[in-house]
Amino acid sequence: MRGWLSPIAIITAATAAYFGGPFLRFAAVYILGWSLAVFGAWLLLRYGLVNFGIGASYALGAYAAGLMYRYLHTADLAVHLLAAVGAAGAWGALNGAVGIKTRGIYYSLLSLSLSMVLYGVLVKFYTVTGGSDGLYMPDPRLLGVRIGTAGLLALAALLAAAWAALGEVFGRSYAGHVAAGIKINELRTSALGADVGRHILISSVLASIAAGLGGLIVGYSTSHVSPDFAYWVTSGKMVVGGLIASFLPWTWGFVASAALYQAVELYSLQFAYPELVVGGLLLAILAAWRLYYRR
């Protein structure tokens, strides 16, 4: 039962952040949104799949809403959510369907390439997508009312809590056990009756939707989406977040890992050599994990 505390912990942390002032509110929305993309990377890592293109889903979620606003002049949250889920879900199905053919680093590079093609399209077709400047993201409205910062924080917290609950269910489920089987020995799992392609396809769609919703939230929080959302370095950071999450024993690990990564990145910016700080801290995390594991 302890696992079910995860969604509650997320909501509690978000509520605390709300009373912590405007910066904490902004940071909480950003981190919760980004954590959904980390969830996507984490879910695929459960199958042993390192997706270096998860940023494409993240970008699509935000662009779906940005394009809705630009061309249909709608800032309606429900429409945006549907568009984000639809676009990211379709992308996940595409990535899953082609990804099934490849494994290991081939899968990683295939997903990276797919995301970079999207990146190229977003930059290139600037008359439609706004090019490298990106698009403006409106304040979303629910039933015609602006949801504001509080509403956005609540939305982010609810979404993160919902995905944490899904993660909890997944961990105990038949599907979660098949994922573990595929990660360790795919052939054997298939010989036991699992349709590996189907499992990977469904999880790709779920992972992509999570990342898409994350992109939507982050886009709202900064009022802006750019092709950088789809750049492979963005995906790389999410994979690192997912890896940290997979070291953590809790279902809300993806939020903790996202908070940690973003905090470290923010903290590092005050130094002349931020990469050194982030790299060094990642190293420290890995070393600590290895020490813990040896015991």
């Binding site: 390192v50 690192v240 050599y273 990469e275 790299g279 190293l283 890995l286 994990w289």
Partner: peptide, 19 residues
């Protein structure tokens, strides 16, 4: 996966050291 993590950290550290 841990090795991927370790080499990613190295990429960042290298970039920092170059700077």
């Amino acid at each position: 996966l841990e090795q991927l993590f370790a080499t990613y950290a190295l990429l960042l550290i290298g970039e920092g050291l170059f700077k």
